[in-house]
């Protein structure tokens, strides 16, 4: 309170110190610090509780695929398969969602009539507000049944690509189904972010390219996309962060198996988040502690992705 920052131009006049001011400023600052403490606490408690099982683990935590932790003697578990599944599911979702999201954002900003565009903005926000468990229910109760024939023909015509090799799972509870639902869930995030940057493209840039005789697509390619690229990348990475940590859609749809497999049309693979949700109710022995160490890995992955996204977005703000 007593320090005067030389960078602030208007120096605060030294007035009477009031109790109310001190209390209010103190509690405001206190809750700010509390947030930092909570975040530090999240990291500290996860590390503290995972230590227990990690030191008892008889296998290499990072290279083992099996999860044999619900015991008191010689637990052997690792996150290799889980981490692979997490990244595979999120990356597939991102590949599906990003082009469509950019398309929707372009539609809302440059193609749709003005009135329709504002309604569509609401609809996108609404999609983001639907709880993930409802997406999961929709996925398992409706979508997987519709996808069955699609998968069969995908395997029939594209089966020579190793990823789409058969035999196709008969239930449709595959990695690809989970990824499609994840894609639907991150679509609004990427769309909202891209839409925001597209709206900020200077009108002069767009009019200049149109005045030079550019078609609408040429205007978008030459004026809008270069300006909006950091926003698209930042939005995609935020979406990736969400997809990495998403639990319910995967836990409800995928029929899990602790393997490392690229075959997205067969049942198998598992993500960290879904594994924790499914295993936790039955965890005994070192089980809970082992799940916490898996959560720590997930926390680290999402932290890196999110900080990268924020960095890209913040840098754009500085230059814009």
């Amino acid at each position: 309170m007593t320090t005067t920052d030389p960078s602030t131009t208007a120096r605060e006049p030294q007035g009477k110190r009031r109790l109310g001011d001190l209390l209010f400023a103190g509690s405001a600052k206190g809750s700010g610090i509390l947030i930092l403490l909570i975040l530090a606490g999240v990291a500290a408690f996860l590390i503290g509780q995972s230590f227990d099982s990690l030191s008892a683990n008889t296998a290499n935590f990072f290279t083992t695929k099996e999860w044999d932790a619900n015991t008191r003697d010689a637990p052997a578990f690792g996150v290799a398969a889980l981490a692979f599944g997490t990244v595979l599911a999120a990356a597939t979702a991102l590949v599906i969602a990003t082009p469509i999201a950019v398309g929707i954002a372009l539609f809302i900003v440059y193609y749709a009539p003005r009135r329709l565009a504002s309604i569509l903005g609401y609809v996108v926000d609404l999609l983001a507000a639907i709880p993930s468990v409802v997406y999961g229910l929709w996925g398992i109760g409706w979508l997987v049944k519709q996808l069955g024939p699609f998968y069969t023909s995908l395997e029939q015509y594209l089966g020579w690509i190793p990823m789409f090799a058969g035999p196709v799972s008969t239930t449709g509870r595959t990695m690809l189904s989970a990824s499609i639902v994840l894609a639907v869930m991150i679509l609004p995030i990427i769309t909202a972010m891209s839409r925001d940057v597209f709206q900020q493209v200077p009108q002069a840039h767009r009019e200049a390219s149109l005045a030079l005789g550019a078609t609408r697509w040429e205007m978008i390619r030459m004026a809008v996309i270069p300006f909006g690229r950091p926003g698209i990348i930042g939005g995609a990475m935020l979406g990736l962060g969400r997809a990495l940590g998403e639990t319910m859609a995967v836990a409800m749809i995928l029929s899990p198996q602790l393997v490392i497999s690229w075959m997205v049309l067969q049942s198998g693979n598992q993500t960290i988040a879904a594994h924790i949700a499914l295993q936790y109710p039955e965890a005994t022995g070192y089980g809970v502690s082992a799940l916490i160490s898996a959560g720590l890995v997930l926390f680290a992955i999402t932290l890196v992705v999110n900080m990268g996204a924020r960095f890209i977005v913040a840098r754009r703000k500085e230059f814009a």
Partner: peptide
């Protein structure tokens, strides 16, 4: 900003550990 990106299951695990 970082906290916005915490996966919800990790928030749950935090309280479990606590």
């Amino acid at each position: 900003d970082v906290m916005t990106g915490i996966p919800s299951i990790v928030a749950g695990l935090f309280v479990v550990a606590l």
